[in-house]
Amino acid sequence: MLYQGGCHCGKIAFEVEGELTQVMECNCSLCSKRGYLLWFVPREQLRLSTPESNLATYLFNTKKIQHHFCPTRGCAPFGEASNKGVAMAAVNVRCLDGVELETLKVAKVDGRSR
C-alpha cells in the first residue's frame, strides 16, 4: 500500500510503500518525548516529495540514526539508518495520512536500558 506523509506545515512531504501492520514503540528518552510509533522499511520505499535540503537532522546517543525533523515546526516524520548494511527508514506513523493507529500491533522496545 502507498501512504502519504509529512510534517505539520508541509515543508517535508513524502510517500512510503509497504505493508503497515506493526509499529515499534521505544521508551528511550528521545522516542518517548517525541511520541514516536516507528515503522521500519527499506529506505528505497520512502520517496521525498520535497527537497532534501528542507530536512533538519538530529543525531542522538550512538549517532547511528539520522532523526530528520522540520526546522519550521519541529515535527519529526522519519529517520534513516543502516541495519547490517541495508539502508532503512524509520517512519513515524503518526505523520502518515489516514492511518488508524488503534488497528496496528505495537511492539514495545526497551531502548532506555541500552
Rank of each mutant, 00 (worst) to 15 (best):
P42T: 04
L2R: 15
A87V: 00
R112E: 15
R43L: 12
M1L: 10
S53N: 11
R94F: 04
R73N: 14
G74K: 07
Q45S: 14
Q45G: 01
V16F: 10
A87E: 13
D97E: 15
Y58G: 04
F78I: 03
T72F: 00
S82T: 15
A81W: 11
F78Y: 13
R47S: 14
R34W: 05
F60W: 14
L37S: 06
Y3D: 03
A56F: 05
G35F: 07
G79E: 00
L55E: 02
L59P: 02
V99H: 04
T21C: 03
Y58I: 00
N54F: 03
Q4F: 08
L48H: 02
Y58Q: 07
L96Y: 00
F14E: 09
G74H: 05
L104F: 02
K63S: 12
C95V: 01
A107G: 01
L104E: 05
L30Q: 08
R34A: 06
A87P: 14
L48T: 08
G74A: 04
D110F: 13
E102K: 11
T50A: 12
V91A: 05
G111N: 12
Q4S: 15
F40H: 12
G10T: 14
Q22D: 06
H67D: 03
A90K: 01
R47D: 03
G5V: 07
M1N: 08
Y36W: 10
M88G: 00
L48N: 09
L20R: 03
T103L: 12
A90E: 05
V86C: 00
G18I: 10
K84T: 12
L48F: 04
L2Q: 15
T103W: 01
R73H: 14
G10D: 09
T62N: 14
Q66K: 13
W39I: 02
G111P: 10
P51N: 13
C28W: 05
H67N: 13
R112K: 15
K63N: 12
E17R: 11
Y36I: 01
E25S: 11
H67C: 03
P71K: 13
L2K: 15
R47C: 08
P71I: 02
E19N: 12
A107Q: 14
N83T: 08
G111I: 10
F78C: 02
K64V: 12
Q22T: 15
L104A: 09
G10N: 13
V23K: 08
C7W: 10
L37Q: 11
E25L: 06
N92L: 07
H68T: 02
N27I: 10
L104D: 08
K105Y: 00
G79K: 00
L48Y: 03
K84Y: 11
F40K: 06
N27E: 09
Q66A: 15
T72G: 00
T21Y: 02
N27F: 11
A90T: 04
V86H: 08
E15W: 01
L48G: 06
R94H: 09
K63W: 00
C9I: 05
V99S: 06
L30M: 15
M88R: 02
S49A: 15
V16Y: 02
C7L: 07
Q66G: 10
E80H: 08
Q66R: 15
I12Y: 08
P77H: 04
F14R: 06
K33F: 02
G85C: 07
N83I: 10
S53Y: 01
F78G: 03
N83K: 12
F78L: 02
N27V: 10
K33V: 02
M24V: 14
T72K: 07
K84N: 14
L30I: 14
R34D: 08
